[in-house]
Computed example of a mutant assay.
Amino acid sequence: MVMIKHLPADGALQREIHGEAAEWSLTDHLLAAAVDHLAAANWMFQCVNTAEDDETPDPPQPVPRPGATDGDGEGDGGAGPEGADEAVSPAALARFFG
């Protein structure tokens, strides 16, 4: 049991037990979160700085996370906050950021 407990986190046994999630380290998850936040900030900036007549840009898709699936079994790129599918208007963003 001691030998099994000390096997590498990205080893074959961990991949067999946890699937693709075993290949992602804490650093990988933090990097994906940083990329998602930067993309969301750029999207918000673009929404606030577009003319009201222009079409609102589509929100960015999050970096796909291992093991994250949506309702039909497909990977959805990670779980976002509840209500994340609701569209945010550029006027609402402008009010929020003053």
Rank of each mutant, 00 (worst) to 15 (best):
C47T: 01
W43R: 08
P62H: 04
V63P: 08
G83Q: 07
M3S: 10
I17P: 02
D28T: 09
D76E: 08
A9K: 14
A21P: 00
A84K: 03
G80A: 09
G11H: 00
H18Q: 10
D53H: 00
G78I: 01
A68K: 01
E52D: 15
G78R: 00
P57L: 01
R65G: 04
A84N: 03
Q46I: 06
D76Q: 08
V48S: 09
S25T: 11
D53I: 13
G75K: 09
A84Q: 03
G83Y: 05
L93C: 05
M1R: 05
A32D: 04
P64L: 07
G73F: 05
S89E: 15
E16C: 14
A84S: 15
P8W: 11
L26W: 03
L38N: 12
P57A: 14
A33N: 07
G83L: 06
G78M: 06
G71E: 12
G98M: 02
A33M: 06
E23W: 00
P66Y: 01
N49A: 02
D36T: 08
V48L: 12
P60W: 02
G11A: 14
R65Q: 02
A51F: 00
P8S: 13
G19P: 10
S25L: 12
R65Y: 06
A32Q: 10
G19W: 02
G73C: 07
E55P: 15
H18E: 07
I4D: 15
G75S: 11
T27D: 15
E55H: 07
E86L: 06
V63G: 01
P66Q: 08
P8D: 13
A21M: 11
D10I: 05
A92S: 15
T50W: 00
F97K: 06
D70H: 12
D70E: 11
M44S: 11
E16D: 12
P8Q: 08
W24H: 10
W24K: 02
A94E: 06
G67M: 01
E16P: 06
A34K: 08
K5N: 11
T50Q: 13
E16Y: 08
M1S: 09
P60K: 03
E23C: 06
A79Q: 11
G73L: 14
G78Q: 00
A92V: 07
C47E: 02
V35F: 09
S25E: 04
D53C: 03
F97G: 14
L93I: 14
H29V: 14
D85Q: 13
A92T: 14
E86Q: 11
A22D: 03
A91C: 00
P64G: 09
P81D: 03
D58Q: 07
A41E: 15
A87N: 01
A51S: 09
